[in-house]
Computed example of a mutant assay.
Amino acid sequence: MNYKILLVDDHLVVKAGVSIILNNEIENLSIAYSSDYFETIHLIKINQYDLIVLDINIPGGKSTAMIAEIKSYLPNVKILMFSAYEEESYALRYIHAGADGYLNKLSGEDKIVEAVKSIMTSGKYLTSTIINKLNDNHRNNEPVNPFDKLSNRELEIAKLLVKGEGNLEISNCLGIQMSTVSTYKNRVFEKLKINNLVELIEKYKLFYD
């Protein structure tokens, strides 16, 4: 029986390359293709797949929300995130959302084959980096999303800062003193382990874009 894979990527070269690598190394594969998220949803509504190799940054994509939506149509399908984004920053976010593995596009041919074989046999592909990160978070009782550590007011202020609002605008918007805004801002930076607004924006995009 063929193991059915849907390879989702908007770059033809990537799809062709990965397909050649997998077909050369793994027997009995049936590989289909999709170039955007809308086409992906259409295909999974009318076909069954064992594994979806899913690029994070595809046209029409919905970040981590794609995982739950795909599994609402195919509850037993495995999802391997395939992205150029660095593993350490992005992998946990998608694993936490329900993905079964995360593979960097810069990985060599052997890693691509290893990832697919691992999911075929065990249902998961977790590198040592991901496992160590998961263990660290569990040991330190750290949430996957660091913004979960913020109070409602701190998160509210963080969002306003990300939108480009200054202390004065936030003070007027929330009806609090500017000194209070500064206090909350310092707490946000401390809890997120960041030093400036640029780092706040970058971290926020990781978890909410």
Score class of each variant (00 low, 15 high):
S83F: 04
H138D: 00
G101K: 11
D100N: 14
L54V: 01
P75F: 11
R93N: 15
G108K: 03
L51G: 01
L54G: 04
A99C: 03
A99L: 00
L74F: 06
L126R: 09
D110Y: 04
K78Q: 14
T129C: 03
I70Y: 10
L92Q: 03
I58A: 01
E114I: 05
V113P: 02
I130R: 01
I119C: 06
D100K: 02
V113D: 00
A99Q: 07
L92G: 03
D55I: 07
L80Y: 07
S83H: 11
F82R: 12
E69K: 14
A115S: 11
L92W: 00
N104G: 00
F82K: 09
A91D: 07
E88K: 12
V113T: 03
T64K: 15
S72C: 09
K124D: 12
V77H: 07
L51S: 02
S118N: 10
K62V: 00
A68S: 14
L74C: 14
I119E: 10
N57P: 01
S63I: 04
I52C: 00
N104K: 15
G60P: 01
Y102N: 03
E69A: 11
Q48E: 14
A68P: 00
E87H: 02
G98Y: 03
T129P: 00
M81F: 08
Y125Q: 07
S107M: 09
A97G: 00
I112L: 15
E114W: 06
P59V: 03
A91G: 02
R139H: 00
N104Q: 13
T121L: 13
I52P: 04
R93H: 04
Y125H: 11
G61F: 10
K71T: 12
Y85F: 07
M81I: 13
D50Q: 06
A68N: 10
D50F: 09
D50H: 07
I58Y: 07
T121C: 09
S118Y: 02
P75K: 11
S89Y: 05
H138A: 14
G123C: 04
I119Y: 13
V113C: 04
T121H: 15
A84D: 14
S63H: 12
I130D: 03
